Computed example of a mutant assay.
Amino acid sequence: MVGRFALTASPDHVASRFALAAIDAFPPRPLILPTQPVMVVLAGSEGRAEAFRPGRAALLVRWGLIPGWFRGEEQLPALFNARAETVHDNAAFRGALRHRRCLVPASAIFRRIEPAQDRAAATPKRRQAGGVRRLTIGEAPVFAIAGLMETYLAPDGSEIDTAALLTAPAQEADRAVVDRLPVVIAPQDFDRWLDCRGYGPGDIADLLAAPPLAAFTLSDMD
């Protein structure tokens, strides 16, 4: 599970990386937690049937996807992450995977990374408390996590835009130290991932994998 990340890149860096014609100013966010607002990037009318304007757009949504069919009036689902290996068959995510794929700008993610011998010997309580590292991608001020977006119609008639981050099992060589990592979409694959009109779930299946841990730069949390 990916339960926290950061977006400290400037609005100009985000706009440049994601080819956004316009973006609202926002402050650095060194720690973003589930249920808080997160930025997502969506395709325009050329990539989504429900979009009215062409070109990519940035939107603030609730981190924690609420399926469109959910009708509960009490506790909302805590769908912060979607598992890449089961997302095609999961009723909570199936529609979003087909029609509302998005990119989630991030400057860093936070994951527990431990040497294999320490991981094996650690108690569950120690694992929860220690070993958390900050993962960035080289010198890049911002990269893209694969996301899924859903708009939920609340019982009071209000609409809530929500999203989940996609995660995948770590590559085999990395599983001794980390179990899962986010699905990171490379810039050359942005168009294919966002174009829900031209590319169905089968056409983007090859993107649903975690990068090697070596792709990240690891540092201690401040």
Rank of each mutant, 00 (worst) to 15 (best):
T8H: 08
P11M: 06
P11D: 03
D12S: 12
A15E: 03
R17L: 05
R17E: 09
F18N: 02
A21G: 12
A22I: 07
A22Q: 13
I23L: 06
D24L: 00
A25P: 03
P27L: 10
P27I: 03
P28H: 11
P28T: 02
P28R: 13
P30F: 11
P30K: 05
I32P: 00
I32A: 00
I32N: 00
L33P: 08
P34D: 15
P34V: 12
Q36H: 12
P37E: 04
V40H: 04
L42W: 03
G44A: 05
G44R: 01
G44N: 04
S45H: 11
E46R: 03
G47A: 12
G47D: 06
R48F: 08
R48H: 12
R48Y: 04
E50V: 08
A51R: 02
A51Y: 05
F52N: 08
F52I: 12
F52Q: 07
R53W: 06
A57W: 06
A58Y: 08
L59Q: 15
L59S: 15
L60E: 12
L60C: 07
V61T: 04
I66Q: 00
I66L: 00
G68C: 04
W69Q: 08
F70I: 05
R71N: 15
G72M: 01
G72P: 02
G72K: 11
E73Q: 14
E74M: 14
Q75K: 15
L76T: 07
N81E: 13
E85F: 05
E85P: 12
T86N: 10
V87N: 04
D89P: 13
N90V: 10
A91F: 06
A91M: 11
A92P: 06
F93W: 13
F93C: 02
G95N: 07
G95I: 09
A96R: 06
A96F: 01
A96P: 03
L97F: 15
H99N: 10
H99A: 14
L103V: 09
